[in-house]
């Protein structure tokens, strides 16, 4: 595959804590994510998966190294510039608390457009909701939606600005198996049909099996990578090795 790089991390480090006691959440991560691919990031709990995602998405600034999205170096952007980049080029789906509780599903989806001061034509927003199968739920508030429906609204919102890349942190972590499958199938479909670039954190081998590529993290470093045919069994086997390793 010779596709362009959408997200590139080079020697990214992220330290937490005081001088006396530092945690190396990321310890020199270099990775590229190509357009139109779905990458899963896996690793034991505390290995730095979320931190990697936050740094790559411009939600957090790395202590060292560089991150570039669509060729733009995030380190060179001001706080405002970073916000605008997130608004225009990046979409997010978090594990939970994805929606503003005061707004309806439709309003939540339109939020990034409105924040950008752009028109949010009702047709466009409803089409986005229809794409995730929620055409009939546009007027509901999050409190009236199931967990799976809330995640689907979040996905519709992440896609509404046609971002270069969508980041998802355990998007199905709080859902039951059946709903998880539906949502993962939908994400896979977006990558295949639209060529959407997507990076997804998970610790579940079955979830990872939907990806084109799996990166394995341990102690803040990329320790392994799977490409080609990714099955839950292979992923689980690799994970078992990682989790058995002494920290």
């Amino acid at each position: 595959m010779d596709r362009e790089e959408t997200v590139r991390l080079r020697a990214v480090r992220r330290l937490y804590g005081t001088a006396a006691h530092t945690v190396r959440a990321l310890d020199g991560v270099t990775a590229s994510f190509h357009a139109g691919t779905l990458t899963a990031i896996m690793g034991p709990s505390g290995s730095g998966k979320s931190t990697l995602l936050h740094c790559a998405a411009g939600l957090d600034r790395p202590t060292g190294g560089t991150v570039a999205i669509d060729g733009t170096d995030l380190g060179s952007l001001s706080e405002n510039g970073l916000t605008l980049l997130r608004r225009e080029r990046v979409g997010f789906v978090f594990q939970a608390f994805n929606l503003v509780s005061a707004l309806t599903a439709e309003q939540n989806v339109a939020l990034p457009l409105r924040l950008a001061g752009r028109a949010a034509p009702s047709g466009l927003v409803r089409a986005a909701l229809a794409e995730v199968g929620l055409a009939d739920r546009a007027g509901h508030r999050p409190s009236g939606l199931s967990g799976g429906e809330q995640q689907r609204v979040a996905i519709a919102r992440a896609l509404i600005t046609r971002p270069a890349v969508v980041f998802a942190d355990e998007p199905t972590g709080q859902l039951d198996t059946r709903v998880s499958r539906q949502i993962l199938g939908m994400l896979r479909g977006l990558v295949d049909d639209r060529g959407q670039t997507m990076i997804m954190v998970t610790h579940d081998p079955v979830t990872a099996s939907y990806a084109d590529r799996v990166l394995f993290l341990a102690d803040g470093r990329v320790v392994d990578e799977l490409t080609g045919t990714v099955t839950a069994e292979i992923v689980a086997a690799r994970m078992a090795v990682l989790e058995a390793a002494p920290c």
């Binding site: 939600l59 916000t83 997010f92 503003v100 919102r157």
Partner: peptide, 11 residues
């Protein structure tokens, strides 16, 4: 959340 999806501090 608003900041994450693109609201500036000013907004």
């Amino acid at each position: 959340l608003l900041r994450a999806v693109g609201a500036t501090p000013r907004q």
